[in-house]
Design a protein around this nucleic acid. Structure first.
Lengths: 135, 135
DNA sequence: GTTAAATGATACGTTTCGAGTATCAAATTG
DNA sequence: CAATTTGATACTCGAAACGTATCATTTAAC
């Protein structure tokens, strides 16, 4: 069972690095060096974060990425939604169509109620709370 | 985020049908008709459940599958483990190797603690509890 | 005993998705 | 202008999910 995919993982690592070192702009080259993430892959990820309003970017020499909003307002669940789509645990798909038992399925009902609580807990995690939690 | 895969889903549906209708043996043909699951696919799934000691099987005319153990001892998490492997939410893999930050990663720490509780809740679900929960 | 209906075992195919690469264009600084 | 940076986007590659096909074996009913 996979909660966090590679994109989200890398995005969080990068955001933590940026948020934890207030040196203004971070070019992808620096981040990919420090974090050991392939440069072009990380670049694509950061571009997405920029489009989503989480990072600011500037081109040209001396350019790079910086946070667009404070770390306490960047939620793990936001990043997950961006890179992994809905947080719904189960889509109840049945060969590309909705499962016919969707109304009566007891498994679905149970899972949905667990899910609700789980996502609520996830939703409390922010870049700031992760930083605070560092050893 | 995918909690339950197709195999597990089909397995649970089949187990619920068998447990909910105490008519002895259920051939795959009947189950695949009722549950609208492709016959050969369901068959493979049931064979696995048999090997794992959850179902009994008998060959020949009049044969089919039956529960090997009572519904209240068949756990959702058992079925999930059979068809989806470990329930660990995150493996912290990094190009086939363990992530180098595994000891310091704050994301990992947070997730692990949430995971523990979540899996505990999952572990309370059995075929019997699902049956009891039906409308 | 023959036949039909069932499972056992296992190999194969197909589609989807995650992960990562490649490339050209545009902007900025010095 | 040259170097360095991001913007946009198309592509590749491999693994996993999902499902099919087939031959062998067992058993009940007639």
């Amino acid at each position: 069972m996979r909660l966090i995919n590679r994109n989200t993982d890398y995005a969080i690592k990068a955001l933590l690095h940026i948020a934890g070192n207030s040196s203004g702009r971070f070019p992808v080259s620096e981040l990919s060096d420090v974090l050991k993430i392939p440069h072009p892959f990380l670049r694509k990820i950061l571009q997405v974060l920029q489009k989503e309003g989480i990072l600011l970017s500037s081109k040209g020499k001396g350019g790079g990425f910086a946070l667009a909003i404070p770390p306490k307002r960047i939620y793990l669940t936001d990043v997950m939604k961006i890179f992994q789509g809905s947080l719904e645990l189960d889509h109840c798909l049945y060969r590309k169509e909705l499962c016919p038992d969707i109304k009566t399925c007891p498994l679905r009902r149970k899972i949905l109620s667990l899910e609700k609580r789980f996502v609520q807990e996830l939703a409390s995690i922010t870049i700031q709370s992760l930083l605070d939690d560092k050893p």
